[in-house]
Amino acid sequence: MDKLSENQAAYYPGCALLTIDRAYNNSSKLVSKKMGVELVEIPDYNCCGIGEMKSKGAASMYMPLRNMMLAKNRLGSKNLVMACSVCYHEFRRSIARVRENKNELETVNAIFKEAGEFGEEYIPDGEARHILEFLYNEKGVDEVKRNTVKPLTGLKVAPYYGCLYSRPSMYTFTDKKPQMDNSERPRFMHDFLEAIGAETVFYGNEVQCCGGRNLIQDEETSFTLCSQTISKAKKAGADVIALICPKCAGALDVNQPKIVEKFGKDSELPIVYLTQLMALAFGFSKKEAEFGDMISDPLKALKEKGF
């Protein structure tokens, strides 16, 4: 395969974005392209492990790192961009660990060697980058402003970062590298939303957990946490909640009918991806941004607000 050009970036879609979370995938690509960078999917990607592999030692690091190898090997890119916060976390965790721990790097490389897929050793010189951080640092807020043709004036948005985009800083280095977002009080989504003309609301649950990890075994916990987040955002006057993680969408959006059934109308609020709102502001249609994919019906809310 051809190596990437200057205006391209290696992109890891992950399992959710290629299937259920098409909306996030498509809008991320649209927005990136508009901002001057084409996201090129790595071929043959594999699952990051979504946190379910953690107790399996170095195998949990092999999973994401195989994708880093693919990016380098097939697309000639040290870095890899991804939109899912869970994948992002798994990648950063693995990279941080093998950088810090030579033994673990050797173990991972032994697995690579046995698998025999790549003729070279893995060297942890590349970074996994979350789409939000990537666009923020590589293109900047001004680029967002420049591309905004239909500002979302009057739309009140509750930015929801969730857990793993900024936590823990021992993996994300969000607190050590000044160009990274803050772990406890992230700002990048706020800045982007304000750049596209929307108004952000403060509601206190920006970095709370959606409980998505145990959604299957323990939806009770997830429903309770999501209900808290949604109702707080609603109380703060938000029209929609903006996400940057498909797992959060699974909890807040897909399950919203069940949450409403259990906790009532206070827990009902349209859920969208940040990139969907950006795509809309950049002049793409609601269809192109796949707003219709969301269960919580943001189309109605957008229409009411005149978008």
Binding site: N46, A58, A59, R66, A115
Partner: peptide, 17 residues
Amino acid sequence: LGKPHNWNSSKEAMGNY
């Protein structure tokens, strides 16, 4: 959705590990 090419080699290597 499919399966990554050559996944079996990774699967075996991780299994052995």
